[in-house]
Design a protein around this nucleic acid. Structure first.
Length: 419
DNA sequence: TCTGGGGTCCTAGGACCC
DNA sequence: TCTGGGGTCCTAGGACCC
C-alpha cells in the first residue's frame, strides 16, 4: 500500500511517432512534420510539436494540415520502429519497478511505492526515467507524479512537452482547481460543452457543483465519476495484466455502392484478422458486432449474440455478412457505404475446442456450408502455414481494399491490445 | 478537399424470469 | 381480473481515449 508520497507515475512519450521520425532522420529535427496523410488525402497520425504550433493535430485530414502549415513535411511512418522503440521504453520503466501498466504504445502508469528505497523519492525516480529514456533511446518523455492515477495523468499532460510535474500530497486542490475540466480523463468536447453551458469550466468549479446536478447533466455514472475525479477521489490501482475484452478490425473503403461480392470479400478479410488473433490466444467470443458507415459519416451497428463462443474465420464471416446486409437494407436504397467493421466481444478463454458449429437451424449459415470440424481444420492449417511462413503467406487483400487507401498492417498492430 | 483504426465504458429500452 | 418489483441479458447508439 502506498503510504504517502506521489508514488504513482504517468509516463507519456511526447508526439511519439513524430519524435521517432526526427530521431531517425536528423534533417527533420526542429521542423514541422506530420506522420501519415498528405496534402491530397489521408489523415495525419501524429504531428511534431513544431507542427502542433500551427494547429496541426493527429486525426486531421492531410489537406487541412497542409493548409494550416504550408511548410509541413509529410513523412511515411516507420511503424516497426515505433513498436521497437515503444517496447524499449517500457523496458526502461520496468527497470525501475515491475508495477508497470502499459495503456498504449507510448504511455504507462507506474507504481513506485516499492522502489523508493532503491532509487529515492518519486520525483527522483521520475527524473531518472526521463533521463534514461532520453540518453538510452533518444526520445523526449513527460512524466507526472501524484498520489492517484488520475492526477498523475493530468500532471503529465501539464508537464508536456518534455517535462516533469510532481503534485506533492497536500497540494492537490491548488493544483487541480484552476485547470480546465477538459483535462479530466473522460471529458471530451461534448461533456465540456454541456458543462460550459452551466458555467462550469474549471475543475475547481466542477468540484463545487452538487453531484446530483452533474449527474443530471451527463448521466448518473458519468456525472458521479467526474465529480469524484474533481474531488481527487480515484481508487484505481496500477494493474499489470490487463486483457482486452473485445477484438475488432475495420477498413475505410472510400465511397462505393454495396455489392455482394465486395462486401463478402472485405468482411472475410476482416473476419480473418480478428479470428486469427482470437485463435492465437485460445480465445473466442459470443457477440459479433458489425459496423457500417454510410456516406455522410452516419454509422450504424448490428450485433448478434450466439449461444456458443466462436473463433472460426468462416463463421465470423457468415454472421458478419448477415448483419451487414441487415444494416444496409435498413438504409435508404442507393446509399453508399464508406466503411465496414467487425468486432467480437463477450470474449472467453477457450482452451477446449467447443463443437462450435453444429448450429441451430435458425442461425443464418448458408445451407451446404462446412461443418464445425471442417472449419476448424481449415483455420488450423491456415494458422500453421502463417506461423511457418509469415502472416502474408496465405489469404489475400481484397481488390476493394487495395483500391482504397488501406492502412499498413504494421500500423494496425500498433493499436492492438493484448488479448 | 471530405475525415484511420484499435479499444473502453455507459445508457436506455425491451424481453424474459422469478 | 388486474397487478409488483427486482434482476439479467441483449441490442443499438454514443462519448471518449490513444
Amino acid at each position: 500500500m502506498p503510504v504517502g508520497g506521489a508514488t504513482i507515475l504517468h509516463a507519456d512519450l511526447d508526439a511519439f511517432y513524430a519524435s521517432v521520425e526526427q530521431l531517425l532522420d536528423p534533417a527533420l529535427r526542429g521542423r514541422p512534420i506530420a506522420v501519415g496523410g498528405g496534402p491530397n488525402g489521408g489523415v495525419v497520425l501524429a504531428a511534431s510539436y513544431e507542427a502542433k504550433a500551427f494547429g496541426v493535430q493527429g486525426g486531421m485530414p492531410g489537406w487541412r494540415a497542409a493548409k494550416l502549415c504550408p511548410a509541413l513535411t509529410f513523412v511515411r511512418g516507420h511503424f516497426g520502429e515505433y513498436q521497437r522503440l515503444g517496447d524499449a521504453v517500457m523496458e526502461v520503466l520496468r527497470d525501475v519497478t515491475p508495477l508497470v501498466e502499459r495503456i498504449s504504445i507510448d504511455e504507462a502508469f507506474l507504481d513506485v511505492s516499492g522502489a523508493t528505497h532503491l532509487f529515492g523519492p518519486p520525483e527522483a525516480i521520475a527524473a531518472l526515467v526521463r533521463e534514461r529514456v532520453r540518453r538510452d533511446i533518444g526520445l523526449p518523455i513527460s512524466v507526472g507524479a501524484a498520489r492517484t492515477k488520475h492526477l498523475a495523468k493530468i500532471a503529465s499532460q501539464v508537464a508536456k512537452p518534455d517535462g516533469l510535474v510532481v503534485v506533492q500530497p497536500g497540494t492537490e486542490r491548488e493544483f487541480l482547481d484552476p485547470l480546465p475540466v477538459g483535462l479530466i480523463w473522460g471529458v471530451g468536447p461534448v461533456h465540456q460543452q454541456r458543462l460550459a453551458e452551466r458555467g462550469i469550466r474549471t475543475i475547481g468549479q466542477l468540484a463545487q457543483t452538487p453531484s446530483s446536478a452533474v449527474e443530471h447533466l451527463l448521466g448518473t455514472a458519468v456525472g458521479h465519476k467526474l465529480v469524484a475525479m474533481a474531488h481527487d477521489e480515484d481508487p484505481r490501482r496500477v494493474v499489470t495484466d490487463r486483457r482486452a475484452r473485445s477484438v475488432g478490425a475495420q477498413s475505410a473503403l472510400g465511397r462505393r455502392r454495396p455489392e455482394v461480392e465486395d462486401v463478402r470479400a472485405v468482411l472475410a478479410h476482416l473476419a480473418d484478422r480478428v479470428s486469427r488473433r482470437l485463435r492465437a490466444k485460445d480465445r473466442a467470443g459470443r457477440t459479433i458486432t458489425v459496423r457500417v458507415r454510410f456516406a455522410g459519416m452516419t454509422s450504424v451497428t448490428r450485433s448478434r449474440t450466439l449461444a456458443q463462443p466462436v473463433a472460426s474465420t468462416l463463421t465470423l464471416t457468415e454472421v458478419a455478412e448477415h448483419l451487414a446486409w441487415s444494416a444496409i437494407h435498413d438504409a435508404p436504397p442507393g446509399t453508399e457505404i464508406t466503411l465496414l467493421g467487425i468486432s467480437v466481444s463477450n470474449v472467453v478463454d477457450q482452451l477446449i475446442v467447443q463443437p462450435e458449429l453444429d448450429l441451430r437451424p435458425e442461425d443464418p449459415w448458408r445451407p451446404g456450408s462446412p461443418t464445425g470440424s471442417a472449419r476448424r481444420a481449415v483455420d488450423g492449417s491456415m494458422d500453421r502455414i502463417r506461423t511457418r511462413f509469415g502472416g502474408d503467406a496465405v489469404g489475400y487483400l481484397p481488390a476493394v481494399l487495395r483500391r482504397g487507401a488501406a492502412v499498413p498492417d504494421e500500423f494496425r498492430e500498433l493499436a492492438e491490445h493484448d488479448l
